[in-house]
Design a protein around this nucleic acid. Structure first.
Lengths: 233, 233
DNA sequence: GTCTATAGCATGATAGAC
DNA sequence: GTCTATCATGCTATAGAC
């Protein structure tokens, strides 16, 4: 699907080809955790899953996941403690489900633009895809970014490795442009990651200034491209 | 003091002129909160303060501040619950003391390089000072970055304003170089902030690759300078 | 100035009614 | 499939001994 996109695609163009978005993610979640969810009727299950995760994002954001209580979660969702446990196995597994969903999308993303011939074009596409995915799934990525350190050691490790794989992929592409040593490419890739992650980490800052995600992506891509291809300026 | 620094100073040079570092911060903390700390003998008080805050950073990092218990804190510091309350008024005030210390240093930083004539030189100096300060006071800045959202509304607001003031200062300087519109300068300043904050947020990534803080600062500064001054490349 | 002991309440999880 | 009621544990904060 990604082959149909231009190099400098917009959010609207990206939306048409991305496999996961705000509305179909609940089905994805239900199917992936079907064995642990005891509720069988699909319609109400999807509605309650949405309530549970939206409330989790809100509560974890205001007090942190480990300090959020299941009683607060019940109050926000309208479920009882017993009802809630039909959807989750434990509080820790609730976080694990989020982390798993995010890792799935980020792992897929690395393969989306491997058909491109130019390394710097692939970098641009990956940065745009990262920014637009984080626009669509902001609460999910935000949760993992801020909470993975407080989760079980195993999940923490997996989250770090996932970030590092994406980082290394960008670094390898930058090195392939021929303009950078391995160490320079690693650092420049780190700057790329920091810039694009800022879109979902500091969302309040960009919203207050009414900056659109397309303008943000344009600015980040231009900064990196002008450094990797100085002759074009 | 900052007037004696060259434009592209190193960590070693910055250390000689910075007012606050790892060892004198405990005195600063004790004096600033003297009215709330009931312990009077200065020597033991400084030792216990160091134990309390170092343990707080470690525990908050592994479970989050709101989920960290004062019992864990007592076990790590060797103090009893009663003893601990000689140094803090409440758990919330412990976080407020950290937030206050960090805000002090960040507010001072904005005035350090106003004597420079060239806006882009001032940007370089501010970015280096920010990175080197965060190297020296990493656990403090890391705590505020990750925990301010979970603190009281008042503190959350103050932390955001502090970030925004620094951001706006950089943006104004970039606009003063003459190469950017207000909106472009805002976005480029945001990229600056994200890159330099990454040094203390993703420290594990840089340490694993054995990247020195001087190399990191050089890379970040070069990226921004090459964009703001394309003719020099 | 630091300790032990405890008050008063909230927590994650489960059992069993319907 | 969802509820209410309850368990055992752990929490912040304080009182009072030394």
């Amino acid at each position: 699907m990604m082959e149909t996109l231009p190099i400098s695609f917009t959010l609207a163009e990206f939306r048409k080809v991305t496999p996961l978005d705000e509305s179909n993610i609940w089905s994805f979640l239900l199917d992936r955790n079907a064995d642990r969810i005891s509720v069988k009727r699909r319609g109400p299950a999807l509605e309650n899953l949405e309530k549970i995760f939206v409330a989790t994002f809100r509560l974890a954001n205001s007090v942190g996941f480990r300090a959020m209580t299941l009683r607060d979660l019940c109050q926000e969702t309208g479920l009882s403690m017993g009802g809630l446990y039909g959807y989750i196995e434990s509080k820790d597994q609730l976080a694990a489900m989020i982390e798993d969903a995010v890792r799935q999308t980020s792992e897929q993303m690395r393969t989306w633009f491997t058909h491109l011939k130019s390394p710097i074009d692939e970098v641009e596409c990956l940065l745009r895809a990262f920014i637009f995915s984080s626009e669509i799934l902001q609460p999910w990525l935000f949760f993992v970014y801020l909470e993975s350190r407080t989760l079980a050691a195993e999940q923490r490790k997996v989250a770090k490795e996932s970030e590092l794989r994406f980082h290394s992929h960008i670094a390898a592409l930058l090195e392939a442009t021929g303009g950078f040593s391995e160490a320079q490419a690693f650092l420049l890739a780190a700057h790329c990651m920091a810039c694009v992650q800022d879109w979902y980490v500091k969302r309040w800052k960009y919203h207050a200034e009414k900056i659109s995600v397309d303008d943000f992506a344009e600015s980040a891509v231009k900064l990196i491209r002008s450094y990797a291809e100085p002759q074009r300026r």
